[in-house]
Design a protein around this nucleic acid. Structure first.
Length: 282
DNA sequence: TATCGGGTTATAG
DNA sequence: CTATAACCCGATA
């Protein structure tokens, strides 16, 4: 009766992946409680996390462990091309060298203005910091930029132009209805009472992109496997290494989504510049 | 209590 | 119909 089966959003999947990378597999309750991920996973139980992780592992493996003896699928796998791709993973809080991405062609046609913007990984890292900050300093009216900056600066090493960077992120999140802005303060916005689903965007929109990206990469397994192995080192799970490598592919699709939004921001800045306004871009 | 693995139901193709 | 994703349940430490 009251079970319309709530599908997992990509934000939730991302949070789960990050959580596993941070805490390790099996620490489902820890991940769920972690303030860094709770904002995404508050509506999921630790059991849900476990089940979801199992499902993701299965689909990443091609076939699998979770199948007794059904129709054997001699599916001709779609792995052939090889495109160089660098994958760098940094857990929030530790400063590790982030490998610069080779100007991922996200198919968006625009003359220039591809530089000076964040890549997907960095962006979601900052997003996580923002959520952590806002959920920790629980201010009913929200927190202003300065408060957020100082909170994050206390816990993480941040670049010198971080304040400006943060402003961009905040504006982005507000535009996505993830945050609420009242006067100069920002505060979390959790979507309550989701009848069938209250998505800010339909997953159908980005699905095609995923296949697009999937074909874009392919022979990145060497690089990906290395970083993936590092990522789940504490999880010491042998079969998951390959699975994680594939997971990185889906992560790239997030980048496409982010890039799209950044374009919007860039446009805005360009707009203001052409209007004679002086905009500093660090 | 949290985790795990098998089982069940809902949904997409 | 089948295959898969989300959810459920009992066993176990």
């Amino acid at each position: 009766m009251g079970n319309p089966k709530q599908k997992w959003t990509s934000e939730e999947e991302e949070a789960l992946r990050a959580g596993v990378a941070k805490h390790g597999t099996g620490k489902w309750k820890n991940i769920q409680k972690d303030p860094e991920f709770n904002h995404f996973l508050y509506s999921r139980s630790n059991i849900d996390l476990k089940d979801k992780w199992r499902n993701m592992s299965v689909s990443a493996n091609g076939q699998g462990p979770r199948e007794k003896s059904r129709t054997p699928k001699p599916k001709t796998n779609t792995d052939s091309p090889a495109t160089p791709l660098a994958i760098g993973w940094t857990t929030p809080g530790s400063s590790a060298p982030v490998v610069a991405d080779p100007a991922a062609s996200t198919d968006v046609q625009m003359e220039d203005s591809s530089k000076c913007l964040l890549d997907g990984k960095t962006a979601s890292k900052y997003n996580a910091m923002i959520y952590e900050a806002l959920s920790t300093l629980k201010d009913a009216n929200g927190s202003d930029t300065s408060a957020i900056v100082s909170f994050i600066e206390k816990r993480n090493e941040v670049p010198p132009n971080f304040r400006r960077l943060l402003s961009s992120r905040l504006r982005r999140l507000v535009a996505q209805d993830k945050l609420e802005k009242v006067q100069n303060c920002y505060r979390l916005r959790r979507e309550v009472a989701n009848g069938t689903k209250a998505p800010v965007m339909k997953p159908k929109e980005i699905r095609p992109r995923i296949s697009q990206v999937n074909s874009y990469l392919g022979g990145t397994l060497e690089e990906a496997a290395v970083s993936a192995a590092y990522k789940v080192a504490e999880a010491e799970n042998k079969s998951f290494v390959a699975a994680e490598a594939v997971k990185e592919a889906e992560r790239v699709s997030k980048m496409a989504e982010e890039a799209e939004a950044f374009l919007q921001l860039a446009k805005e800045i360009y707009d203001r510049c052409s209007r004679g306004e002086v905009v500093m871009v660090a």
